[in-house]
Design a protein around this nucleic acid. Structure first.
Length: 349
DNA sequence: TAACCGTGGTA
DNA sequence: TTACCAAGGTT
């Protein structure tokens, strides 16, 4: 074995973390952890893994849950399509595979929410199959060590790194190899201020030798952010309020929210008082309007306010909105933004 | 292909 | 405060 492998493997055996999804090689748990960890730090994902593993010990348990329940467990982790796809794939495994996790790369890759990285990670870690798991860590480690300046988010870059990773895993223990490289990127060759002074590869690292550590990896695309203006309404009916389920292809799909009005620009409070309501009624009293809250997503900036309405007298259920008892609000999956507004209004958790 | 899809940590 | 970005995938 060459210098690269030997040093990283030695480093890994000394420095690897004791992570809960690596206690055994249950493909279901490895899959679950990989979905949770997509674009997510280990420290943030850990608690969610414990939650899911306890609520759904097997893939059949997950398959028989309701999507609302799965989304509630996922609440706060973001990228909610992961939860929807996780649940949909669990149903496929339960029904089409009779509860046995598929054990070949093609069928793993065919699962919803499983792309090239995740399929390779599961195939290698759970089934010893020699597929390189090329994630953000590995782009960073390889680009620095080998001095590769091809942008990692270009198609040429993806092809180049994939090919290099395939050469590197040849003849190695696939699961250990992939995990060693990822762990090395996550703990040693970190994005900012990597620990080059204590790095076992410092003698042969191209970036360190050439002063390119802070320039690599190269990424070209920058996502521009769209501004949106959300006005949420609490319809306080004494012991209950109204909730609404989001649908369509927008953010927070299938999560619940307070009745919402969206505008292209910010409304002043006086404009807001004259504006349409999500549910019209002559028996409303405005208790207060909150200050503006800025909620930043990866690709959108949402400027939001909460309008607290007290409903006088009777109020018919304005379908498709649902009337929810205040003590049951916390059973519904909501975005962080709605969760914070509910909390500030003394509702929810 | 590029835009879209969340949240929280860090410098 | 801003900018970056973390065990990416889908459309």
């Amino acid at each position: 074995m060459d210098n690269f492998h030997t040093n990283i493997y030695n480093w890994y055996h000394i420095n690897k973390r004791d992570l809960p999804w690596r206690k055994d090689r249950d493909p279901y748990k490895i899959w679950l952890s990989e979905i949770i960890l997509q674009q997510t730090r280990v420290e943030q994902g850990k608690n969610y893994f414990y939650r899911f593993a306890e609520a759904y010990p097997t893939v059949n348990d997950l398959a028989s849950a309701h999507e609302d329940e799965v989304l509630k467990l996922w609440q706060g982790l973001g990228y909610y399509s992961r939860a929807r796809n996780l649940h949909a794939s669990a149903k496929i495994i339960a029904l089409q595979y009779n509860g046995t996790f598929p054990n070949d790369y093609k069928n793993i890759l065919a699962l919803k929410g499983v792309g090239p990285y995740t399929a390779a990670a599961i195939a290698s870690i759970a089934f010893d199959l020699p597929f390189p798991a090329v994630d953000g860590n590995i782009y960073r480690v390889l680009s620095r060590y080998y001095g590769i300046e091809t942008p990692i988010d270009s198609s040429a870059g993806k092809k180049e790194f994939q090919q290099l990773a395939e050469e590197l895993i040849r003849g190695q223990n696939p699961g250990m190899h992939n995990q060693a490289l990822m762990e090395f990127g996550a703990l040693q060759c970190v994005p900012k201020s990597p620990k080059c002074e204590t790095c076992p590869l410092s003698d042969s690292c191209f970036a360190l030798k050439n002063g390119l550590v802070n320039q690599l990896p190269v990424k070209e695309k920058k996502t521009k952010q769209r501004h949106r203006y959300f006005y949420y309404y609490i319809y306080d009916m004494g012991d209950s309020i109204l909730l609404d389920k989001r649908s369509g292809s927008d953010i927070w799909q299938n999560l619940y929210q307070l009745p919402l009005m969206e505008y292209e620009k910010a409304l002043s409070d006086s404009e807001l008082l004259k504006a349409d309501l999500p549910v019209k009624s002559s028996q409303l009293n405005i208790k207060y309007i909150s200050g503006q809250k800025k909620h930043v997503l990866s690709h959108q900036i949402i400027h939001a306010k909460l309008i607290y309405l007290e409903v006088q007298g009777n109020f018919n259920n304005p379908s498709p909105l649902i009337r929810v008892n205040k003590k049951d609000i916390s059973k519904f999956a909501v975005s962080r933004l709605v969760e914070q507004f509910l909390h500030e209004a003394g509702l929810g958790i």
